[in-house]
Structures are given as structure tokens and as C-alpha cells.
Design a binder for these strands. Structure first.
Lengths: 212, 212
DNA sequence: AGTTAATAACTGACCAGTCAGTTATTAACT
DNA sequence: AGTTAATAACTGACTGGTCAGTTATTAACT
């Protein structure tokens, strides 16, 4: 009786991250409700029962997915908040490039969409997402705007609103990509979008600068 | 045995709209998957079986909800597209006020959120939403921008991107209201947001207008 | 009386979560 | 070094509850 290749390996250490990665993929594809634990297990190379060795419930897995995506971005936000001042246009251009890059090279947007979609059923996840990530990022930008206003570089106006104006087109661009491009919509080139947007914000749309 | 008030009335004509209205409420509260047909029926004052006299499936009801919300807004979009030209700043300020008003006084944003959330499972709804509503509205604004560019009023740049820049903060503000305000986030005053945004787009953020 | 809107009890598929049993791995003892 | 006992990771068939959709029956209207 040759043993042959074993039916499974005991790899307690690696299972949780593998499961969370598989779950991220399935949740991103199907949404929370339509994601099946059997499929998550299959993609993680494990049986469904094994999921319950590491997580209490399906919701628990979802929480872990969101948490894992939030964590690395928190440090990025903190770095942004601590950015050296310098002239406002340079700062804001740099942030625009950085933010657009992160948005395109991480599962952030897929998870963001899920958090938005499931906010009703997981209010505590919406809270974490807001408190730890969105509010921080918005606050950091608003802070930079406020400092620039104090230096007389930027016009008066609500800094938090300015921060939203700054970031909103990118967010909508991401939603556009996830929602409408798959059904045939013309995509937006996000880096180009962001660079045009930043210049518009800085200098305005109008050719003649006449106060109305 | 006095008959008393009848247990139910036969009101074939009114049922469909009543059902769709009830369904809109439940879908908006719970999302598609978590919405139960029993509850939709209960709120429509009807039994679950009666739903199936007027609709084939749950998805069918959802489609009807989306369709009913799209229809009246299509006419609004068409009116906007046919707006008299005039100076660009006036036009764009008017549109901003109108759009902000509609967004706040219709179930549009709730349905929009649902369409975004369920786009994967209902691609044809995402397509309708895009083709009949979003794309039209964006095109109308882009057309106005292009005309203003031709008149030399507005700087060069992709008109469709300008349109997205214009509308994005409002959309994000709506998502903010639906998602983060319920978990304690500071709300945005949408009309104020829009008016600050329009002025920023027109004139820019910077105090000194030096080309960089 | 005949027609049909409407009901309420019912069915069957689906799926999160369970658990009795199996297998890989380690430890203890020759 | 080889054998065996003990442990813990892992499996997969099973269950119980939920819920979209069906149907036998009733009651309203013509």
C-alpha cells in the first residue's frame, strides 16, 4: 500500500491568509450574499469545514477581508498626512498621482464597492472604513488646504468640501470602471482624468478670469 | 352571518404600481438579496401569491422598480440637453441647482446605489441605467462644455471628463449620505457643496492666477 | 352562474453551519 | 531506526432553516 501523494497538508499558519485571499476574490466577483462558502473553500484549496477552524461565520470572513485591505492603506494615509508642506499646487499634484496609482493597483476599489453595497447589513464595517480610512484621508487633504489658505495661497471656502471636490472624480471614475465599463460604457483614463481635474481645480475652467 | 367588510378588494388596475412602490421601499432598505417577497407583499397590502399575478419573478419586480425611477428622469435629462445656450457660467450654475434638487427629492440615489451594488448580478440593468440615464446626462453636460469651448469661453480639455468632474462631488456626496452619515459621519450640505464646487470649477482654487 | 383576483398553505432548492470520522504529523518509547 | 500512541488539522456528508415560487381553494365582482 504505497501512500502516494497525501490528500492534504497540515498548514495551520498559512490557511487564514489563503482563505482571506480566496474570499476577497469571490466576494469581489459575486458580492457578499451571492458568494458561496463552498467556492471560497474550493479556491483556497481546502474543504468548507476547514473554514470554520479559522473563522466563526461567513460575516467573520468578510470582516477579515475588509480589515486586511484597510490595514496597509492606513499607513499610506498617515504618510500623506505627514507630507511636507511646500507650495500647494505641487503638493496636490503629487497627492493626485499617488492616489490614482494606489486606486488602480490594489483591491481597494473592489472592497470599497462591497463596503458601500453591504453598509446596511454591516454598519460596523462602514464605520471602520469611514473612521480609519476615508475620514483620515479626507482630513489630511482638508488640512493641507487649510494650511494653504492660511498662507494665502488658496481661496476661502470649506476645506473639507474642497477635499471632497478633489477626490470625488477619481471615486466616480472607479465606480464607472467597475459598473458601466463591463456593460459597454466608454472608460475613463484615470490618470489623465486626475491630471485634468487637478489643473481645473487650481486654475478654473474659464478662459477669461472675470469675477461674476 | 353578516358579511361585514370584505377581506380584500379586487383592484387589478392599481396593484402593479402599489407593489412597485412597496418594493422600492423594501429594496432601498434592505438591498436586493435581503429583501423578502413576503415583506413586499405585506407592505403592498397583498399576499405573496398576488405578486405573481403581476410579475414573473423577484428580479422582474426589481426591473420594474428601476424602470419606474428611470422614466421620469429621462425627460428631465432631455430637457437639460435642450437648454438654451447663454453664457456658460449661468448655464452650469442653473444645472447644478437643478441636479442637486432632483438628487435630494427623489428616490434616485437609493435606486442608484442598488444598481451599483447589483450590477454584477443584473448587468442589463446597469446597461439600461447607463444608456438611458447616466450617459445621456453626461453627454448633455459635455455638449454644453464643448459649445462653450467653441465660443472660446472654456479652456481646452476633454469635455466628457469635464462633465464627470462637474457631477462627481454630488454623487459622492449622495453616497456619503447613504453610507457614512448613518454611522456617525459628518454630513455634507449638498446645495452648499454644489455651489462651492461650481465656483471652484469656474474660477479655480488659487488666489493668484499664475500659469504654472 | 361564470369568471378571475386574491389567498394561504404548500413545495423544493439552496446553503450556512455542524460533526463524526479520517489522515497527516509529532512525540514517546522501545 | 522503527514502531506505536497521541494530537490536531482536515474532510465531506448531513441538517435545519429560509425563502422564491406553486397550487388548491375561496371570495369578490359581472
Amino acid at each position: 500500500m504505497e501512500p502516494g501523494p497525501p490528500k492534504f497538508r497540515r498548514r495551520k499558519a498559512d490557511r487564514p491568509t489563503e482563505i482571506v485571499e480566496a474570499a476577497l476574490a469571490v466576494f469581489a466577483e459575486k458580492g457578499f450574499a451571492a458568494a458561496k462558502l463552498d467556492e471560497i473553500a474550493r479556491r483556497a484549496g481546502v474543504s468548507k469545514g476547514a473554514l470554520y477552524l479559522y473563522f466563526e461565520t461567513k460575516e467573520d470572513i468578510f470582516r477579515a477581508v475588509v480589515g486586511q485591505v484597510i490595514a496597509p492603506n492606513m499607513t499610506a494615509v498617515k504618510a500623506m498626512a505627514a507630507a511636507h508642506p511646500g507650495p500647494f499646487p505641487d503638493l496636490i499634484r503629487g497627492v493626485a498621482v499617488a492616489v490614482a496609482h494606489v486606486a488602480q493597483t490594489s483591491p481597494l476599489s473592489a472592497v470599497a464597492k462591497m463596503v458601500l453595497g453591504e453598509a446596511r447589513n454591516f454598519p460596523e464595517l462602514a464605520r471602520v472604513w469611514h473612521d480609519d480610512l476615508v475620514s483620515q484621508a479626507l482630513g489630511a487633504i482638508a488640512g493641507a488646504v487649510e494650511a494653504a489658505q492660511a498662507r494665502g495661497e488658496v481661496k476661502p471656502g470649506d476645506p473639507r468640501t474642497y477635499a471632497l471636490q478633489f477626490i470625488a472624480p477619481l471615486l466616480v471614475g472607479l465606480m464607472w470602471r467597475e459598473t458601466f465599463v463591463p456593460v459597454g460604457a466608454e472608460p475613463f483614463d484615470l490618470p489623465k482624468l486626475m491630471s485634468q481635474h487637478v489643473e481645473t481645480l487650481l486654475h478654473g475652467l474659464l478662459v477669461t478670469e472675470t469675477r461674476s
